[in-house]
Write a protein that binds this DNA or RNA. Structure first.
Lengths: 113, 113
DNA sequence: CCAATACATTAAAATATCTTAATTTGTTTG
DNA sequence: CAAACAAATTAAGATATTTTAATGTATTGG
C-alpha cells in the first residue's frame, strides 16, 4: 500500500495516479492477463490454464486489475468472464512494445533497485 | 530484484520485459522525473529542487531510469544534464492520461496488493 | 591546491508487493 | 440437496522496492 503524505502539489498528486496506472501493467502476471484478454474474453479457469499460475494468484491479480479499471467481469453460469474495459490499453501495449524493441539492449532494468 | 525462473515460454519472457518497461513508470518519483524531463533537459539539482525530494533519491531514481534506457545524461561542467532518450515516451504518457481521465473513479488502485 | 558545489554510490531500514496455502462463497449437476 | 466445480477472499511468508543517511568522487572557482 501507498502511504498518504500530507503536503503534495497537484502535479505530484496527479503523477501518483498515473504511476498507479502504470503499476497495473508492471507485474508479469497481470500484464500476461491483460495481453490474453486483449485477444478475447476469458474465464478464470482458462486464464489459469493459459498462464500456468495458481487459481489463487490469477484471481488475486484479476481483482487488482478490476479494481484499477483495466478489466470488467460478468458471471455466466458457473464461470466468470473477464474482458478489457478500455480498448486503448491495446494501444499502450503496442507503443510500449515498439519502444522496447528499439531499446532491447537497455530495458532489462535496474540492478540496483 | 526480479527472480529468474527456469521454465518460461517465449511469450512469458517477452511479457516480463514489457512489465519491466512499465515498472519504470510505476513509481511516483521516477514518473515525476520523466514528466519534468519531457519539458526540458535538466540537471540533478534542478530536479531535486523542482520535485522536492532528496538528492540521493533523485540520483538513485535517475540511475534506474538511465539503466532502463528512459533517459541519457551528459556532463556539462560541474553539472550533469539529463534528458529523455525516446520521445515516444511522451505519447505513452499522453495516452495513459487520456485513459485515466476516463476512469478517474476507478484508478486509485488495489486496496489489496 | 583546497574548499565548495554537484552528483553518484552504498548499505541498511522502512515499506510495499507478490505469491501461496487454506478457506469460503457461489453455481450447477446428478 | 449433496457433491463437484469455479472463483473469491484472507492472512501470512517470501521478496522486492523505496527511501534515507552516510560517504565517496568529480569539477571548478578562489
Amino acid at each position: 500500500m501507498q502511504s498518504v503524505s500530507v503536503t503534495h502539489s497537484d502535479a505530484a498528486v496527479q503523477t501518483e495516479i498515473y504511476a498507479k496506472f502504470f503499476h497495473g501493467l508492471s507485474n508479469p502476471t497481470r500484464l500476461r492477463i491483460v495481453e490474453m484478454l486483449l485477444d478475447r474474453e476469458m474465464n478464470v479457469s482458462q486464464l489459469v490454464e493459459a498462464i500456468g499460475a495458481s487459481q489463487s494468484l490469477i484471481s488475486n491479480q484479476l481483482a487488482c486489475l478490476k479494481w484499477c479499471g483495466y478489466v470488467t467481469s460478468r458471471q455466466e453460469g458457473k464461470y466468470v468472464l473477464y474482458r478489457i474495459s478500455d480498448e486503448r490499453v491495446r494501444t499502450v501495449l503496442q507503443l510500449a512494445k515498439a519502444i522496447v524493441a528499439d531499446n532491447a539492449e537497455h530495458i532489462r532494468c535496474c540492478t540496483r533497485m
